[in-house]
Simulated scan of single mutants.
Amino acid sequence: MDGLLRIKQTAISQPSTETASESCRSHRMLIVHSLSKRFQLEHGDLTAVDNLSLEVHPGEVYGLLGPNGAGKTTTMRMILGLLEPDGGYASVDGLTTQTDPIGVKSRLGFVSANDGVYSWLTVREMLLYFADLYDVPHQLAEQRCENLSDLMEIRNLLDRRAGDLSTGQRQRVTLVRGLIHDPPVMLLDEPTRGLDVVGVQTIFDYISILRQAGKAVVVCTHRLDEAERLCDRFGLLHKGHLQYTGTMQELRDATGHKTLVDIFVDLIRN
């Protein structure tokens, strides 16, 4: 049974802090190994990502953090297979981008600040269309559509045109769309950008649901205060290099600073 279907009765207004079991955490759902990417510019090469390695376990939320230009989005695009790396690879649920890029894509869910909904379709039509793209059997896709709509409180929107929805409603639809094929790994790129307080809380609740369902989650953001609340472990990127990685306590021990903001300010200044 789908992990998300098992928790369809969860009230998203009361996010849980429980993570996956220790036995699940022993499995590395996402492995990034020595990823590198260089771009040729008019005045020389730019190394956007430099020999980046990290891993994320089921039920874990990993914050890939850094200022603008640190290499976060480039890393995401290489994991998603939208950008070919100059070196290294990503492995998702045992499949690698080198040997099975299509299989990797099928095991990834992606949510970004840009909703990209299809305005001329109803919400139901769009969700079932994306399920079909991932070869989800129609009956199962309909079941997931119903259950996820209950989970994210959009059932009353299913037969409305996506173009007629408010910003907050479109956001919830986008979150459901990212899960319609029940991927084991979820990538969230700046998910709270431009959202109000209610919208940000929706993202927090959504990540809690992903954690309960045993998904491996990567949150890419420069909102460091939010990251401290959301994430189990962190990777701090600066100029393409992974400068620090670990839990909040491990980062404090390594740097002597108490907050992510203090750590980054010191990192950038030096």
Rank of each mutant, 00 (worst) to 15 (best):
221 T>R: 10
63 G>K: 11
141 A>R: 01
221 T>I: 10
167 T>V: 14
29 M>S: 09
210 L>T: 06
184 P>N: 09
58 P>W: 05
125 E>W: 08
50 D>G: 01
19 T>V: 15
168 G>N: 12
231 C>G: 10
64 L>K: 04
236 L>C: 13
129 Y>L: 14
128 L>D: 06
234 F>N: 09
243 Q>P: 00
10 T>Y: 11
111 V>L: 15
144 R>H: 05
97 T>Q: 03
223 R>F: 11
189 D>R: 04
37 K>I: 02
41 L>H: 12
15 P>E: 12
165 L>Y: 07
262 D>K: 11
176 V>H: 02
167 T>F: 06
54 L>W: 12
199 G>N: 05
101 P>E: 01
227 A>E: 04
98 Q>H: 04
4 L>G: 05
116 G>I: 09
8 K>Y: 00
39 F>C: 06
174 T>W: 02
194 G>D: 07
221 T>V: 12
229 R>E: 14
38 R>C: 01
96 T>Y: 03
168 G>H: 11
238 H>W: 15
70 A>C: 04
85 P>H: 02
230 L>Q: 09
50 D>L: 01
240 G>S: 03
102 I>Q: 09
31 I>T: 12
66 G>Y: 11
136 V>F: 02
18 E>V: 13
68 N>H: 05
173 V>G: 01
198 V>N: 02
205 D>G: 11
203 I>F: 07
209 I>N: 03
28 R>G: 00
231 C>W: 06
127 L>Q: 02
81 G>L: 02
199 G>Q: 06
129 Y>W: 14
157 L>E: 05
27 H>F: 12
188 L>I: 09
150 D>F: 05
31 I>M: 04
191 P>K: 02
47 T>E: 04
32 V>T: 13
49 V>S: 09
216 A>D: 11
189 D>M: 01
133 L>A: 10
70 A>E: 07
105 K>M: 04
16 S>A: 12
106 S>R: 15
44 G>D: 04
268 I>W: 03
71 G>L: 11
112 S>R: 11
230 L>V: 15
228 E>A: 05
235 G>A: 05
50 D>S: 13
86 D>S: 06
54 L>D: 03
163 G>W: 08
239 K>S: 13
34 S>F: 00
25 R>F: 04
32 V>L: 12
23 S>A: 14
47 T>P: 01
219 V>E: 01
222 H>I: 04
159 D>A: 08
40 Q>E: 14
89 Y>V: 11
164 D>F: 11
18 E>G: 03
152 M>K: 02
263 I>W: 00
23 S>Q: 11
11 A>S: 14
1 M>S: 10
6 R>D: 13
6 R>Y: 02
228 E>I: 00
172 R>M: 12
258 K>Q: 13
195 L>F: 07
129 Y>E: 07
19 T>W: 07
258 K>I: 12
201 Q>K: 14
71 G>Q: 08
141 A>T: 09
139 Q>K: 15
107 R>N: 14
147 N>K: 07
